[in-house]
Design a protein around this nucleic acid. Structure first.
Lengths: 143, 143
DNA sequence: TCAAACCCTCACATACATGTGAAGGTCAAG
DNA sequence: CTTGACCTTCACATGTATGTGAGGGTTTGA
């Protein structure tokens, strides 16, 4: 397919698709007239790229871990230099730390939201039960 | 403490500490001579900020979810407007998607690394067992 | 008193992911 | 043959998180 269709199917601007190519994340073929030609599998790849970028990873890192995420579980022994392995292990640790941090933040945010909603429900019940008038700014503490 | 000490204790440049202040993420006091004055609790706060930014969240979002992550679990009812709640819920979803994506990527990367290391060990054993000569570029498939 | 080591503000510079638009080539339909 | 919808490259613009440095005040210690 050409860039327009890929753009529509991935929700990614043509500009960005060219940018990802410039960054070495996708390597389309070329039609005789110079138009880029993409295979079906590129759709998934682009979505994967978007997801990783959206998660805060820079293209440099995406480029490194992308080959590991391919479907056919292909292992390129040429990639098995000690430096590459060290980089990948480092990146795995970074991802783990990132996941942990985000999970903690998400959980804290969820707890806060629960408390907020629970408190609002209580307040609404009080309200319905008759305590009238404009309530002053209030705070609640949960130990 | 002043900005230099905070910088050392958090591994964050002075420039960035001032930037976080400009973004409303931290609000130091001021000494009579104009120097910024930080309390102990700011150390943790800065580390939290770094972690969130490092995980790919923009300061705008960090500013919004930071109050939810404080120790004393204080709920500010003034924040309980429907818009704020909607934003927080949206951000919780975004965080969840982000965590899922990163977790999948991390797991895939870990699998790849395991396969790579396992294969390298096998290759080393073969090598030790006598198959000699420069091995050509090889690939292995795991279904 | 002088220097070193702090601090201040202001401002310009950079890397990255992205938008936008100009100038022009290709192709299919009318 | 023209029009419109594609495509190309190039280049400048923007927002965000950062670095760097100038110009200048403050504090501390020799």
């Amino acid at each position: 397919m050409r860039i327009g269709e890929l753009s529509e199917r991935t929700g990614t601007s043509r500009r960005l698709l060219r940018y990802y190519e410039e960054q070495g994340l996708i390597v389309p073929g070329r039609a005789p007239n110079g138009y880029r030609e993409y295979g079906e599998e590129v759709v998934d790849r682009v979505l994967q790229i978007r997801a990783l970028l959206d998660a805060g990873l820079p293209t440099r890192i995406v480029r490194q871990i992308l080959p590991c995420l391919g479907k056919p579980r292909t292992i390129h022994f040429s990639d098995a230099t000690p430096e590459t392995i060290a980089t990948l292990e480092q990146e795995r640790e970074r991802l783990t730390r990132r996941v942990d941090c985000l999970t903690r933040s998400r959980d804290a945010l969820a707890d806060y939201l629960d408390a907020l909603l629970g408190a609002r429900r209580s307040a609404a019940q009080e309200e319905a039960a008759g305590s009238s008038g404009a309530a002053p700014a209030r705070e609640a503490h949960r130990g």
